[in-house]
Write a protein that binds this DNA or RNA. Structure first.
Lengths: 179, 179
DNA sequence: AAGCTTGTTCATTTTTTTCTAAACAGCTTA
DNA sequence: TAAGCTGTTTAGAAAAAAATGAACAAGCTT
C-alpha cells in the first residue's frame, strides 16, 4: 500500500513557474557551454551542469529546483554546490521568510579565476617549490655521475626553477588583465 | 622448452649503463614533480611519469629504456609518447646507425605552454564562440519571458561574451610573458 | 513530541578512464 | 624467406572517478 502523501504529484508545488519551451532551450544551451568548460577544467560534468543551470536562471534557484531541472540525485547536487561555493562560483541568496537556500552565480570572471587559482593552482605551485629544493640538493650532492651528466642535470633543475618563477610572475598579471 | 634466445637475459644489452643509486633517487624526484603536474593538468599519470623520466635523463632515452625504468607496459609508453609528441613536449633525436627512436624533452616553457594552448584550450574556445552565438540568438528570439527575465538573460550572455574576449586577449599575453 | 522540510553524508553502484597484454605491422639482417 | 627487433594497435582488465540512494541531522510546525 502506497504511503499517504499530503502533497500528491499532481498538485502544483509552490515554485513551479512552468518554464516556457524557449526558456528550456536557452537553459540547455547555457548548460552545454558550461559542461564543455567543465571538461576543459577537469571538473565533473555535474558541476558544469549545476553552474550552468544557475547561470541560466533569471532568478536564484532552490536546491530542489536544481535537482529537478537536471535530474541529478540530491547527493550529487549537494556535493556539486559545495565545490562551487568553495570556489566562489555560486553564492547563496537570502530570501526572507523562506527556510530554503537560494543559489545565484558569481559572474565576475576575475573572481571565478581567482577561486580556481586559489583552490587548484596555488597549492600545487607551493608543493612544487618544496620538491624543487629537494631535487636541487640531491643533484648537487649526486655521486656517480660524469661531469657532463651532472652539468645537464644542473641545467635541468635551473630550467624548472625558471619555469616556477615565470609562473609566479604570470599569475598576478592574469588577475590584473581580468580585473 | 624455452625458446632459444640469441641474447639471453644475463647478457648486457648495449645501453645498460647501470644507473647509480643517487641517479635513481634524482630521477624519482623529477618524476614525482611531473606526476604532480600531470594531476593539475588533468592528464594521465603515466604521461607525467614518461615526461619526467625523459626530463631527468642526461641523455635521450630509448623506448625500451623508458618501459624498463617506469615498469609501464609498452602500450602505455607508446600512447604516452604519442600524446607528448603531439603536444610538442618530447622530440625524437636521431642517432646514426641505430634504428631505435631516442626521446629528449622540450624544455622551453614557452613551447610547452603553446602546445597545451593549441591542443587543449583553443579548440574549446572556438567551440564556445559558436555556441555563444547560438545562445544569443535564442535569447533575443525568446518568447514567454517577462521583460525583466529577458533583461537578466541578455546581460548573462553579454557577460559570457566579455569573458571570451578577455580570454582571447589573455592568451597572447601569456605567450609573451613566457617567451 | 511527532511529523515535515531541507539538505548532508557516505557506502555502494555505475560509468569513465587508464593500463595491460597479446596480436600485429614494418624494417633489417641472416 | 625466416627470424629478430622496434614500436603500434586494440580488446578487455583494472583502477579511478563520479553518481546514486538511503540513512541521517537539524530545524520548523503542529
Amino acid at each position: 500500500m502506497p504511503k499517504l502523501r499530503l502533497r500528491p504529484e499532481n498538485a502544483s508545488p509552490p515554485e513551479a513557474l512552468a518554464s516556457s519551451e524557449s526558456q528550456l532551450a536557452i537553459q540547455a544551451q547555457f548548460i552545454e557551454l558550461f559542461v564543455s568548460a567543465a571538461g576543459v577544467l577537469g571538473v565533473p560534468r555535474s558541476i558544469g551542469e549545476i553552474y550552468g543551470v544557475i547561470f541560466a536562471a533569471p532568478q536564484p534557484l532552490t536546491f530542489q529546483e536544481i535537482v529537478e531541472r537536471l535530474a541529478l540525485s540530491k547527493g550529487s547536487v549537494s556535493q556539486g554546490l559545495r565545490a562551487l561555493r568553495s570556489l566562489g562560483a555560486v553564492r547563496t541568496a537570502y530570501v526572507p521568510g523562506d527556510r530554503r537556500d537560494y543559489f545565484e552565480p558569481e559572474t565576475e570572471l576575475r573572481n571565478l579565476v581567482a577561486g580556481l587559482l586559489r583552490d587548484r593552482i596555488n597549492p600545487h605551485l607551493e608543493q612544487a617549490r618544496d620538491r624543487l629544493g629537494k631535487v636541487r640538493q640531491q643533484v648537487s650532492a649526486g655521486q656517480g655521475l660524469s661531469a657532463t651528466e651532472a652539468e645537464v642535470l644542473r641545467s635541468r633543475v635551473n630550467k624548472l626553477e625558471s619555469w616556477r618563477k615565470k609562473g609566479a610572475l604570470l599569475l598576478p598579471l592574469v588577475a590584473k588583465v581580468l580585473g
